[in-house]
Design a binder for these strands. Structure first.
Lengths: 154, 154
DNA sequence: CGCAGATAGTTGCGCGTGCAATTATGATGG
DNA sequence: CCATCATAATTGCACGCGCAACTATCTGCG
């Protein structure tokens, strides 16, 4: 019942919180200082960039960008106002809409990467070897798992 | 100049963002659902709990709780309004103030842990062995480092 | 066909946050 | 002793977010 977690697990979780807060702040600060789009915008636009035809349904985009639907809706408002993407109606389903990356959006993405890339290199690349980074990615990936519900099933 | 990061490092960074967003959302949801204090409040109160005499200068607390000063100031307002801590003037320095944990605050901390602990166990403990958790913590810890300023030197 | 229920997206609302400016106090130098 | 600058904390402001409620459309069943 109590399910008390082991100290190692708590420490790992707290390290995750700290590392995230620290790195996010530094990177976002660097982006702001350089006058390029913020991290959230980058993430959202990158989702489009990686999608087939550089377009996504808004709900997909919300999932990919780790945002709530309403949050995404407003973000798309801002990105559209900035000319970095456009909304396009969906032909199959009149309720739905696509967000489509514009040339300006692609350019913003590239400009941002000129700052973002070096930041990742400075904050991650210089601190971890390639092998360590792979291990880190794997360990973090395990935390997402399919509900980890070995719980009972088996 | 370009400092392009290796794909492994980018993947690790993205995994960190994803894992943080996913776990934070789940845990905070569980806390809200259980009607206990949210994660931020817990973190802040825990800083006090771990401090000598269960009191901290507000600036220290801001650092420990990963918040800006203004953010912390408002958070302390809310926590004080909820009776979970009190502000006490600092004798050495009339500008400063301490935040001090109250008995109610301690109780809130314990109640929250009853939900938070099992969540960590479910989301981290069941997915990583103790050894893996230790490795994860170490890798994440390396990301904070002392500015990793080999920068140029070499 | 027509209505109930599900689904896509948007909007009202309140909250929490950071930045910049402000207030109050401490430290330093003429 | 007073002026100057640094520091601790708070406050004005605008922004971004999620939840819940809403509108519009699609789906299925009688």
């Amino acid at each position: 019942m109590a399910d008390r977690p082991a100290p190692e697990h708590v420490a790992a979780w707290r390290a995750l919180l700290t590392a995230h807060a620290d790195l996010t702040e530094r990177i976002d600060g660097a982006l702001r200082h350089a006058g390029v789009i913020p991290l959230r915008w980058y993430d959202a636009l990158l989702c489009l960039y990686e999608a087939p035809e550089r377009r996504l349904r808004l709900a997909e985009m919300a999932r990919a960008a780790l945002l709530s639907r309403s949050g995404l809706s407003r973000l798309v408002d801002r990105l559209e106002a900035a000319g970095l993407l456009t909304r396009e109606p969906c032909e199959d389903d009149a309720r739905g809409a696509y967000a489509v990356l514009t040339p300006d959006g692609l350019q913003a993405l590239r400009r941002c990467w000129k700052v973002y890339g070096p930041q990742i290199e400075a904050l991650v690349g210089r601190r971890l070897t390639a092998g360590e980074a792979r291990r880190l990615r794997k360990l973090l990936g395990r935390l997402l798992g399919p509900e980890a519900r070995g719980s009972r099933s088996s």
